[in-house]
Design a protein around this nucleic acid. Structure first.
Lengths: 203, 203, 203, 203
DNA sequence: GATGAATGAGGATTCATTCAT
DNA sequence: TATGAATGAATCCTCATTCAT
């Protein structure tokens, strides 16, 4: 093997590279079972360098949840919010598509990390809630409201808990995380739920 | 005050006492952060004795998931299956009650453990699936079937994924595990879901 | 080699054994350069066991200074204070003997540790001052006072700083710690000082 | 406020600047606890540059003891040796003044470093002995000799160990290094010692 | 059976030193 | 020269597991 250059200065990219590597490692083995050495190896750097950018393993964990997630969630949400369709068409279209993608996305992984490690990081929980959950719920509420205003939905739509839209997505996520090999048509699950809800609220 | 050992009974109960103590400890701190010493202290015995009953920490973990869970789940399911009501009355009554209790029950804790540690224990996942999830799903399917046979539900009820009944329960569970202090009327969430579903399938 | 028993329970003696081993190690290499592993090896135990008795390396350091020193200083001071001689005879005899022994005793080692590491352990400094230095100074003052009362010393003896008696001892200590191989008749140094002082204060 | 680099001059001064910075750092935290990074920061240069002038941390340590000390000691001794006074006047005047200044001077710091780290650097010890201690002792001996020759001191003065003059200075140094906040009139201690000695040797 | 002292492998973290830029 | 990113050996400390008592 030709020997690789031993040094490669890439100050700019390192933090993200490390966070990405850590994300993979945490995703695969969980926080506790992940060795800083693993992360470094995945990132193609030495263990010590990790500590130049992240003071502790916990810092790294927080960075993973914050940066990685938000980066990807932003992308996903952007997709969704830039549409102009009838409320029903939007919900059955882009919004459903979005929800279908979540259980297989990094968001699911992060949820798992938060479920496992969240207790010791209340600030992370808050961060995640504010930046992901609350935004998602608000988007749904906004949509229902708009539907009512436009006369597409009945006024009772306003009283619907937005979590009703998300429940099958959550179940699908957990299902796929835990029961990897047990069959479940998660797409159909979400479609059915949307159908139930739209039937109920359509004007 | 020094905390008193919680368990201290006859030898024959030891394995269960240890498993119970371990369950508490795992519930509080998670698998990795739980010290065998903690478990022993909670069980009121010495660290060494733990190893007489469980060869490794992992064994203990498995025992917790298996024994503790099944024991408690059995109790919960027994409640439910011994009823004679109209299908709708049953669903809105005992079944809904049962579901409402789950997010605050040990089952939620075990779910968390499985989400966190399950990957490394596929046999546990299978065990849990067979003994808890599959039984629950089958019960729901059986119920729908019975409703159709009795003419209470429309035949399409047979096609409903039983997970639709469980989705809000799952979301409630996760919500309460993760967002301990964020408000969510989980009971209402489940009621609404039941209502949506019954509206759809009632004859 | 016949294999030694792998386990040897000696709960009672361990703390002292470890502290003694640590004392040796610290004496030889200083605090920073001493590895817990060295200490354990010297004590004939495993590294981990050290931590059963001393939570951190710092704890061990404190224990060394406190226990080891006080143990030995007590012995030395006991010697001295139990005499009944004329003041001059006492000073030229037991007290001088005592001082001559100090530079080669563990006290010198501890002084070195305090000089090196003391800044980070003000409590240790205080402890050492109270238990060693202050006691020594007080003993000297008491002696001068007694000499005056008995008419053996002139009243001006009361004004003598007790540190004047100790100064050559201190120089001898440092000299021997630092300039191990440079000649200096430390005994004569102390004798001369005592002589100077007695000449001055004798009635 | 970010601390400003203290040194930042021409290249030719670099080695000295670094050594001075290192001296400060060693003085503050001791050898082991001083990071090369600290030294560099104090010197207003990058870590790497330090290695251009000093191959290792130990080299730097040696340079500190050698250059810094000798530079400052030379200055101090120069003061002293250029006088023309009666022997007694000289001892009670410039020499006593000099000794009084030592415990608060960098020499004290270096002594501490030698006490802490000297064992691993016998060459440094020798260097220090030759350039500081031996010179000091010789100066004192020379002075006594001269006093005898001039008829100011009795011939027995020749037999006096020069260390007797230095003992209270040494004690004062250590006292101030270790018992920073315990009161001791170190000036008076030295004055008294000089008085004792002069009383003994004056013709 | 019980105990808890003892072991030792392993992991997070630090920091002197190197070297691409 | 000058920088500071990068390396990796070294070290403290933890904790599951063992075993003498």
């Amino acid at each position: 093997m030709a020997s690789q250059p031993k040094y490669q200065r890439r100050k700019e990219d390192r933090p993200r590279e490390i966070a990405d590597a850590a994300f993979e490692a945490f995703a695969e083995k969980g926080y506790a079972a992940t060795r800083i050495d693993d992360v470094a190896k995945r990132a193609g750097i030495s263990k010590g360098l990790t500590y130049l950018y992240y003071k502790t393993k916990e810092d790294l964990f927080k960075a993973v949840v914050k940066n990685v997630v938000v980066r990807r969630v932003d992308a996903l949400l952007a997709d969704v919010e830039s549409t102009e369709l009838s409320s029903e068409a939007f919900i059955r279209g882009p919004m459903l598509d979005f929800m279908k993608r979540v259980p297989g996305s990094p968001i699911a992984i992060v949820i798992r990390l938060l479920i496992s490690e969240g207790r010791r990081h209340p600030d992370l929980i808050d961060y995640y809630y504010d930046n992901v959950v609350a935004r998602g719920l608000a988007a749904i509420s906004r949509f229902l409201e708009r539907g009512v205003e436009r006369g597409e939905f009945r006024p009772e739509a306003r009283d619907l808990q937005p979590q009703l839209f998300l429940a099958p997505m959550m179940l699908s996520m957990i299902w796929r995380l835990v029961f990897t090999d047990k069959p479940l048509d998660t797409d159909r699950l979400m479609e059915n739920q949307i159908d139930l809800l739209l039937t109920r609220i359509k004007a």
